[in-house]
């Protein structure tokens, strides 16, 4: 198969970028999208040009490293896959393919198609965890968790943190990512203890980082490679409302320590 590629090239975070057009011939339809880029890069290197920088690692759709906004879709035209699982058979021979980096204020471009998604880590660090230290834990079967709850929790926990939701959203909102984490933990009894603080802290961080608001367009859900549902966003809104309305004023510790 033959393709014309229009790829965003940007030397570094500060440089001005532009689209560069490349022609690529004789690509197997069984080739994955990233393997196609490997072939392009091999050709570029041999010509003495710099290869196109893109993020990738596991190449089996689970690490969440790969990104790319391909012809108007994060992770390309196929559904429920990441870019590394996208195959060239999903395109037609002779197609022009436009490849862009994720675009969002909190995801600045580092180079070419690579963006900095550290904002997601910061949101998790703000509260996306259960506060337990290692050791001294009761038996795993001491807590009964209805299968239904565990399944819904797992649905949300399947998020790979790739950022496609942000890339797809016309508002660059990170609500699906945050909602997936909030839901994952809020649905489990272990996570309930600090659910109220968690949702508030994570939303605060999300806002602070400059992500947009959710306007319920559903683009995130449509493009999510793990098909995480926007019912999680509703759940987060519910959790948030409950936390804001229901929580007491912060208790001032009365001390009593050392």
């Amino acid at each position: 198969m033959n393709f014309t590629l229009k790829i965003w090239r940007q030397k570094n975070a500060k440089a001005k970028g532009k689209f560069v057009t490349y022609k690529l011939n004789d690509i197997s339809s069984n080739c994955s999208f990233l393997e196609m880029l490997d072939i392009l890069n091999e050709q570029l290197v041999l010509k003495g040009d710099e290869p196109v920088a893109f993020d990738h690692d596991c190449r089996e759709g689970i690490c969440g490293t790969c990104s790319l906004y391909i012809n108007g879709h994060p992770h390309g035209p196929d559904t429920a896959v990441t870019t590394c699982q996208l195959h060239m058979r999903k395109f037609r021979d002779g197609d022009t393919i436009v490849v862009e980096p994720w675009r969002a204020k909190p995801f600045p471009v580092i180079k070419d198609l690579i963006v900095n998604r550290n904002a997601f880590d910061q949101i998790i660090q703000a509260g996306g965890f259960i506060s337990v230290n290692t050791g001294g834990i009761p038996d795993a079967n001491a807590i009964l968790i209805p299968k239904e709850d565990a399944d819904y929790s797992m649905d949300a926990a399947a998020c790979i943190g790739c950022g496609a939701c942000v890339a797809a959203c016309k508002n660059a909102s990170a609500m699906l990512f945050v909602a997936a984490k909030v839901s994952h933990l809020a649905l489990l009894p272990q996570g309930k203890a600090e659910a109220s603080d968690r949702v508030q802290a994570m939303v605060r961080k999300m806002d602070e980082l400059g992500f947009g608001n959710c306007t319920n367009t559903g683009a995130c859900e449509a493009e999510c490679p793990k098909q995480i549902s926007i019912t999680n966003i509703a759940r987060m809104n519910r959790e948030f409302l409950g936390a804001k309305v229901g929580s007491q004023k912060k208790r001032v510790s009365s001390g009593g320590g050392f």
Binding site: W8, G72, H73, V98, A104, A172, G210, F211, G212
Partner: peptide
Amino acid sequence: NWMARPVRYKVEGYSHT
């Protein structure tokens, strides 16, 4: 929301929404 994406896409979202 506009501020959250200072650089826009060349090919705007074709996502099913």
